[in-house]
Structures are given as structure tokens and as C-alpha cells.
């Protein structure tokens, strides 16, 4: 007697995401790409100012061991009106800390839609795609899309000057990895 194989409905693939606010707009980021969430206040003494004219969205850097992590202002990155920021996402596998207004909530998404080819400028690097949550369309950011290689080179050059400055500048404080 031959039994027909049972075809199981494939489980819906979900991804944990964090909804965050920047300048009154909502964005999503994969939870897995966020290593730490820190308040601006908790990092106030650990950051150093950096002034690279070619990358105005970065005004601070953090030292994490031997690496420099650049704090990207999300509102400036997306071309939005600057707003008071309270949190920093330290992103995995990047040298970026993302300065945001706040976290809306954590949730899951089941479907990521690719950006239409009609979008043909920087947003194709900014976003992984779009998701629909509670009948709202939310852009899902690409953690690798906040700083280009060129911007990193510029920032590293500027950071070198900052770190070699005399001790009169703010002291380095190593952060726990």
C-alpha cells in the first residue's frame, strides 16, 4: 500500500524588526543588525567631536577598542528636518552608530517588497525594501547603506587628526564590546 506524501504548508518566514522614529517619520531595521541600543546621555562622555565637511551627517565618533564608530544622524542622512535625538543604535558589522529620536516598537515582518525601479537614486542604497504593517508602508533600512566607502575614508582621515590631538581634548573612553 502506497501512502501519498504529506505536503506541509511551508512556515511563513518572519523577521524581527525594530520600528524607530527620526524626524517624525517611521523606519524599520532588522533587530539582528542592531548590536546595542544606547541613550545619548550614556555616551556623552565617551564620544569625540569630528568635523568632516564632506560628511555633515557625522559629528561624533566613538572608540570601540581599536575601531572608530561614526555616529550618523538619521534625520540628516535621509534629508529630513533635524530633530532632538535620544538613542543610538550601534550596528553590527558596520562602523556606524545611528542617531535616532526613539523606538516605536519591536515587531515582525513577513514580507519585504523590493523598491520599484521607479526609485532610482540614493534610496536604493538606503533601503532593503518596503514592508506593510497595519496598512502602513514602512521603509526597511539597509544597515550597510549609511556610509559609503568614500565617506568612511574621509572620516578615517579626519578621525586620525582628532585622535592624534593633544591631551587637552576629551579623553578616550573605551566601550565594552
Amino acid at each position: 500500500m502506497r501512502f501519498e506524501p504529506v505536503h506541509k504548508t511551508p512556515a511563513v518566514r518572519t523577521e524581527q524588526i525594530i520600528l524607530f522614529r527620526s524626524s517624525n517619520q517611521i523606519f524599520a531595521i532588522s533587530s539582528a543588525s542592531v548590536q546595542e541600543v544606547r541613550s545619548v546621555d550614556s555616551l556623552a562622555g565617551a564620544s569625540m567631536d569630528i568635523d568632516e565637511a564632506g560628511v555633515p551627517k557625522v559629528r561624533h565618533l566613538l572608540k570601540r577598542g581599536e575601531r572608530s564608530v561614526y555616529v550618523v544622524n538619521a534625520a540628516l542622512h535621509f534629508g529630513l528636518r533635524p530633530s532632538p535625538a535620544a538613542l543610538i543604535f550601534l550596528l553590527r558589522k558596520t562602523r556606524v552608530g545611528l542617531l535616532i529620536d526613539g523606538i516605536e516598537k519591536m515587531t515582525t515582518m513577513t514580507r519585504l517588497q523590493a523598491l520599484s525601479p521607479a526609485f532610482c537614486h540614493e534610496e536604493r542604497v538606503w533601503y532593503r525594501g518596503l514592508t506593510v504593517l497595519d496598512q502602513n508602508v514602512i521603509p526597511v533600512v539597509n544597515p550597510q547603506g549609511f556610509l559609503t566607502e568614500q565617506e568612511l575614508l574621509q572620516l578615517d582621515a579626519a578621525a586620525g587628526a582628532v585622535l592624534e590631538a593633544p591631551a587637552a581634548c576629551a579623553p578616550e573612553v573605551g566601550l565594552t564590546p
Partner: peptide
């Protein structure tokens, strides 16, 4: 119509239609 930050001129935002996100131009 849903609007989000982007840099493409001529695109106002997007609408939802039959589960698909459609850009508005």
C-alpha cells in the same frame, strides 16, 4: 498615499493596491 524619505524627483509617494506597493508619479 504613503510618503517616505527618498531622492527621486517625480515620485510623490506610494499607494497600496492588491497587496503591492505602487509608486505614484
Amino acid at each position: 498615499m504613503f510618503r517616505f524619505a527618498h531622492r527621486t524627483p517625480g515620485i510623490d509617494g506610494v499607494i497600496l493596491r492588491r497587496g503591492r506597493v505602487v509608486p505614484v508619479c
